[in-house]
């Protein structure tokens, strides 16, 4: 009798928790954009843990994620499970990475947002200007029913995205990046996911390896700049979101980096003075979903990198100039 009573209590509790997490709206009444908006909020507001796999070209990584929202403040831990296991802790947009090397653990500090599964911003207006969204049936991902939404680009300057969102909780369970030939360039998907009922943050501390020295990343800080470098005639829909000067491994001078985004895809432009005797790079190459293009402008090496079609990096690489 006692066992039955306990089982009833447990059932009632879990039912309440699930009911509280579920929204009053049902999935059927939402249009494609509303489904995406719900997914953007779900990724930030829900408490969950799981494991996802990221595949780009021939490379893949398995990542364990724990995410909680403490009174509006997001905290998350991502553990990248490869031979060189590293832990990524984030609180809001602030990220600290513990990266082990043979003898040290390097502490890196970053700013970042839209980490999976929070791939989409909650304000979808920029994406809406560059993509159309369509509901495309349901499928099961990680044993959960998912609504598929397709994000179709309005022009050839961006790829197509396919998003699987949890019918019940809204969370993005899977996302793929497809080129114009319908080939999958990049995909990221949960292979297990569960909601957390606990608010216990005991997991939010790094595993300390006492056999290693903890050192701060060198050349980490970057400075925001506004100088005479500009990109005129950007492909439609891309906006400059950042311009910094930074250290790049193996370079003796500071390198300019501008980042452009259409709300979901991003492109970096690097500008570096060509040193005497340095052979300039030219041309284009594709690696997985990443297109890279090199050009020489005003005695500077320009390198454009992005998870966007070749036409986009080519156009941007030719559009770099110095304001006179």
């Amino acid at each position: 009798m006692f066992r039955l009573g306990l089982a009833l209590v447990l059932f009632a509790t879990s039912y309440c928790v699930l009911a509280a997490d579920d929204t009053s709206e049902t999935q059927q009444t939402l249009d494609a954009w509303q489904v995406l908006e719900k997914s953007a909020y779900a990724a930030r507001e829900l408490n969950y843990e799981g494991q996802f796999i990221y595949v780009n070209g021939e490379q893949s990584r398995t990542v364990e994620i724990t995410h909680m929202n403490h009174g509006g403040r997001e905290v998350a831990r991502n553990v990248v499970l490869d031979a060189n296991q590293r832990e990524v802790y984030s609180k809001g947009n602030d990220i600290v990475i513990f990266q082990p090397t043979n003898k040290n653990v390097i502490i890196k500090k970053r700013r970042g947002k839209n980490l999976f599964p929070a791939m989409l911003p909650t304000d979808l207006s920029i994406i809406k200007a560059n993509y159309s969204a369509e509901l495309a049936g349901t499928e099961f991902v990680a044993n959960r029913e998912a609504q598929i939404v397709e994000l179709m680009p309005v022009d050839a300057y961006r790829y197509r995205y396919k998003v699987w969102t949890d019918v019940k909780f809204g969370l993005i369970l899977k996302m793929t990046l497809l080129n114009e030939g319908n080939n999958t360039l990049e995909q990221i998907y949960f292979n297990k996911i569960s909601m957390l009922n606990s608010q216990n943050p005991n997991w939010f501390e790094p595993k300390i390896d006492i056999s290693k020295q903890y050192v701060t990343e060198k050349n980490g800080p970057v400075t925001e700049v506004d100088n005479n470098w500009q990109v005129t005639n950007l492909p439609a829909g891309y906006q400059k979101i950042n311009h910094i000067q930074r250290h790049v491994r193996g370079k003796n001078t500071m390198v300019d980096q501008m980042v452009f985004s259409d709300g979901i895809a991003s492109v970096s432009v690097f500008i570096e003075p060509l040193a005497k005797g340095q052979r300039p790079k030219k041309g284009h190459m594709l690696m997985g979903s990443t297109n890279m293009c090199a050009n020489v402008i005003e005695g500077h090496q320009v390198i454009v990198v992005g998870e966007v079609p070749e036409m986009t990096v080519q156009t941007i690489a030719k559009a770099v100039s110095l304001k006179k």
Binding site: R61, F116, E186, R246, F270, P280, G283, E307
Partner: peptide, 27 residues
């Protein structure tokens, strides 16, 4: 000039991934 494919600037790929706003390539 040398073709980019023959002299891959991997350092720039890394620099892009460390700052690009959409986070999957980070991993």
């Amino acid at each position: 000039p040398v073709e980019i494919a023959k002299s891959l600037p991997i350092e720039y790929l890394q620099a892009h991934q460390s700052l690009a706003p959409s986070g999957s390539s980070y991993y």
